[in-house]
């Protein structure tokens, strides 16, 4: 893997492209819009995968965190920053939305200390509902009518940068002691505790980081659409993110990129089918679960997403297949 520097070059080239494409009008505005949604969906999917895939919990309230980020960042750009200066303050607003969402994540992770599986699903479901009905009742952000007045500050280069940052940070976390702790919680929480892992701290980290990026995605989403209302962030939105996670594959960032891309593009292609696309997509998902229960790329990773330190040990696996057996004696 001496080609690591290539990744940097490709990332820079990608950034240049994300700037050039809208600047020179190489693509249809509609396709540009789809590309931005695709990026936002990648952020949502990868961040939910941290909790649902890597840690094996079942959170169904991701849209709630997204809503917190969307509203907080919108209020920041509309009410707090003067419109003229808002352009370079946009990342501050997005990070602000992310931080607000991670605070919400912290609050949700507290009752989740004692719950797992179904119970955690109920806690996060309730959280999603609370966020939605709270927003419907806050008149200063428009209540059920929604909130508007944002400029279209989200551009393709911004989405690109945030996708890269999200994947990089999630990758860093996954390939650290916290990431190993999360995987061990998924495999056997009691044994994990007995191996000296502070399971509570690991769960909090996962929730907070996951919620942060959901908030970031919300902020970007609000500034593409320039209009948000509480109904956008209901259980259907959460379900959509869940579908992308399971489509791409559990515990795989590469899978999340794939899953979000395939789902977003497929939904756009099926747009002409109208209501039928809501039948076709779930049907595809059922087929996937039957034939590939772990998703397209579950528990696997692209080598370029794995730090070199951890990649070295993937090598002996391939060699081992050729060998007859592992020596049994000690």
């Amino acid at each position: 893997m001496k080609m690591r520097w290539m990744i940097g070059v490709l990332l820079l080239a990608g950034f240049a492209l994300s700037w050039a494409v809208p600047h020179f009008g190489w693509l249809d505005p509609y396709i540009l819009l789809v590309l931005m949604y695709l990026g936002i969906n990648i952020i949502l999917t990868a961040s939910l995968n941290l909790v649902n895939g890597y840690m094996g919990e079942f959170s169904v309230g991701h849209a709630g965190f997204m809503a917190v980020g969307a509203y907080v960042s919108s209020v920041l750009t509309v009410n707090l920053f003067p419109v003229t200066g808002a352009v370079f303050l946009f990342p501050v607003a997005v990070v602000g939305g992310g931080l607000a969402a991670s605070l919400a994540g912290l609050l949700v992770s507290i009752p989740s200390f004692r719950t797992r599986g179904d119970y955690l699903a109920i806690v996060t479901l309730a959280f999603g509902m609370i966020v939605k009905s709270a927003l419907e009742n806050i008149e200063s952000v428009g209540g059920p009518r929604g909130f508007m007045g944002m400029e279209q500050l989200t551009t393709l280069p911004w989405v690109y940068v945030w996708v890269v940052v999200t994947i990089w940070i999630l990758r860093n976390l996954v390939f650290s002691k916290y990431g190993r702790g999360m995987a061990a919680i998924r495999e056997d929480e009691v044994a994990c505790d007995l191996c000296g892992v502070h399971t509570r701290r690991v769960k909090i980290s996962a929730f907070v980081v996951s919620a942060f990026f959901a908030g970031v995605a919300g902020g970007l989403y609000a500034h593409v659409l320039q209009f948000i209302n509480p109904r956008m962030f209901d259980i259907l939105k959460s379900t959509e993110i869940l579908i992308m996670v399971y489509l791409g594959g559990m515990a795989s960032l590469g899978g999340s990129i794939l899953g979000a891309s395939i789902y977003t593009i497929a939904m756009e292609l099926l747009r002409e089918q109208g209501a039928w696309r809501m039948v076709l997509m779930p049907l595809l998902l059922i087929l996937l679960m039957l034939f590939r229960p772990r998703g397209l790329f579950g528990l696997r990773e692209f080598p370029w997403l794995v730090p070199l330190r951890d990649l070295v040990l993937l090598r002996p696996v391939k060699k081992q297949k050729e060998k007859t057996h592992v020596p049994a004696g000690s």
Binding site: K177, E187, A191, C192
Partner: peptide, 23 residues
């Protein structure tokens, strides 16, 4: 046996040193 089945052999061993990793 309660190993972390889907984790690699190496990660099973590394996990046990979680508490000793100072970062």
């Amino acid at each position: 046996i309660r190993l972390f089945k889907k984790m690699t052999v190496l990660d099973n061993v590394r996990l046990a040193r979680y508490a000793r990793l100072g970062y």
